[in-house]
Amino acid sequence: MSPPASGRLADAYDLVIFDLDGVIYLSDKAVAGAVGAVKRLHDEGRAIAYATNNASRRAAEVADLLTGLGVPATAGEVLTSAAAAAQRLADRLEPGARVLVVGADALRQEVAERGLTPVSSADDQPVAVVQGYGREVGWVILAEAALAVRAGALWIATNTDRTLPSPRGPLPGNGSLVAVLRTALDREPDEVIGKPEPVLFEEAVKRDAAARPIVVGDRLDTDIEGAVRAGLDSLLVLTGVSQPRDLVAAPAHQRPTYVATDLAGLFEDVETLAIGAEGTGWRVTDGKLDGHGDPVAALRTICAAAWDGTDVSALTGATDEAGAVLRTLGL
């Protein structure tokens, strides 16, 4: 999609698809400003969806968590990789088929509700293994999964996020656990369901019959790449995993349409949020950043230069203010 020329960002789209971890909350605590921003969208009657790779909660549990934080939400607005993976298995397998579940109880329940039989041992001869994040996942169940896959079971991963954001810093995510089996089996999963695959975004768009949706996320390699694959505009917020240095170095398939500090960006002017927008107050010339104003506006200018082929690896500040901005951004 081509970005609109002017107006509030939220006004330019008919559906806002939010990632959760690192965007709305970190673990079980709200990201600063997120509750007010999402509530404001609800109060304005705007369509909202939540698309999460985290397979440890069911849609109703996610909605309850959001409501407990003060965010108006219903289970119908939530799409999880656990539900999508279970549905994919149900579409591919015979009713009652045995599936070895690696992950939280939420994933096991999703599998059972679709008429499949969850098991926890390779001795049960499962025809598929589904792997999602679970805090209690350990060597025993991973060993059973390895045996089942080696015996010919289909292997589906809910996602391959290497880390999960938390108030204490990034923690191992499902991708790290998938890497254990990848190393042991010397092969990739047969299918990955969650972002950056476009499945969750496509389902959200279908549910709301949206003509112009936007994805809001904190990860370049899942949220933003998923949006690019789905042909959707995207807003990267700097409240979670991906940071300015990651953004500057992002390959074409992981570049967002817009960048903002946090969800307050949804109510800012489109023309100030887009990468490469004019009038940012900043410029990159001869290896130096010059200008004044908002550090994130400087980041957009730096990204535009880098993505256009300018070498910004040794960028310095032309003024004390510019130097301070570079330090603030970690560049």
Rank of each mutant, 00 (worst) to 15 (best):
E110A: 14
G36M: 07
G68M: 06
A305Y: 07
L181Q: 09
R58P: 00
A304G: 09
A146Q: 15
P189A: 06
M1H: 14
R162D: 07
T301L: 04
A63G: 12
V140S: 14
G173N: 11
R108S: 07
L15H: 07
P251V: 05
S56W: 06
R46T: 05
G115H: 12
A90H: 08
A153V: 09
P196S: 11
L15Y: 04
K288S: 15
A106E: 11
E94F: 08
L20Q: 11
R135K: 09
A209S: 14
A230W: 05
A90R: 12
W139V: 11
V149G: 05
A10W: 08
T222K: 01
A264H: 15
V259R: 11
N53P: 11
T74W: 10
L266R: 03
L93Y: 08
V35S: 11
R283K: 15
L266S: 02
R168E: 14
V215S: 04
R8T: 06
D286H: 13
A34F: 06
S234Y: 01
L200D: 10
R88H: 14
A179T: 11
V127N: 02
V192W: 01
A211T: 00
I24L: 15
Q109L: 13
M1Y: 02
G231N: 06
A305Q: 00
G132W: 03
R92I: 09
V149P: 06
E191D: 06
T301Y: 03
D105C: 01
E94A: 14
H253V: 12
E144F: 13
I24K: 01
G96H: 04
R300G: 09
G279W: 10
V296H: 08
M1T: 13
I24W: 05
R8M: 02
G265S: 10
L89S: 03
A51Y: 03
V270N: 01
G152E: 09
G134V: 12
V78H: 07
Y25P: 05
V101L: 03
E203V: 12
T285N: 14
A148E: 04
Y13M: 04
A60G: 07
D233E: 06
L69T: 01
L326Y: 08
A227S: 07
G194F: 01
A146S: 12
A252D: 15
R8L: 09
T310R: 14
P4L: 08
